[in-house]
Amino acid sequence: MTTPPLVEQLTQKASLVSAVVRPVASMDEAMAYVADVCLGKEACQILASGCDAPLSDTAEALCQTKQEKIICAPEMPAEAMATLTALCDEKGISLITSGMRSRLGGIDIGLTMAVAGIAETGTVVVRSMSEEVRLASMVAEIHIAVLPASTIVADSYALEPQLVAWMGQPDYTAFVTGPSRTADIERVLALGVHGPLELHILILEDK
C-alpha cells in the first residue's frame, strides 16, 4: 500500500520537530506499542537528565510522589481500554483514567486520541475539555497520541469550520507540534521543559 500524501507530509513535518511517528494498522497494535514503550522506558527519564541534580526541598518532595510505572489514558475508546488493561496487567504497569491532580509529580505515559492532524506543520489536534486529558498530556514524560489517518487535513485553514463549531461553547483545544521545548538558555534546544520530553504519534489506518 502506498502512503497517502497527507500522512507522508505529516510524518515528515512531525519528525522534523522531534516527534516519533509510527503507522499502526489497528487499535490493538497501537495499544501494544504503548505498553511496550512504557515497559522499555527508563523508570523516570527526568532521572537521566537531572534527577541526580540536587533540588530544593519542595521540588524534591513532589518528585518523590511517583514510584511505579503509570499510564494515564483518560478518554480512550472502551475497546482500546480493554486491550490496554490486559496488557498493563500482564506487564505490571499501573493504568489510570483519572486522578491526575494527585499525580502531578509525573507519570510515564499520557495516552490521548487526537481529533485531527495538520499535515503542513506535523501537528496533532487534541480536544481536551476534560482536565484529565490536559494534565495527562502535559504531566507525562511521554505523550502518545493516536491519530486516525482519515482526520488529517492539509493545513489549519481546512480545520477552521470544525474548530469554530467547537468554540461555540466552552472549549479547550490544542494544536500540539512536537514535544515541549525551549531555547531560552543560549538558544540551545532542550526538550521537555514543562510538558512531555517525547511526543509519539500513532497514525491509525482507518480507511
Binding site: A53, L55, G105, V193
Partner: peptide
C-alpha cells in the same frame, strides 16, 4: 535558588527549572 550547586549543563538546568516550577 535551590541552595545546591548546579552544574553548567543546559539540558540539566532546564530540568532543574521544570522540577522547581512544577510545585
Amino acid at each position: 535558588v535551590t541552595n545546591q550547586k548546579q552544574e553548567v549543563d543546559i539540558q540539566k538546568l532546564v530540568k532543574v527549572a521544570r522540577r522547581e516550577l512544577r510545585p
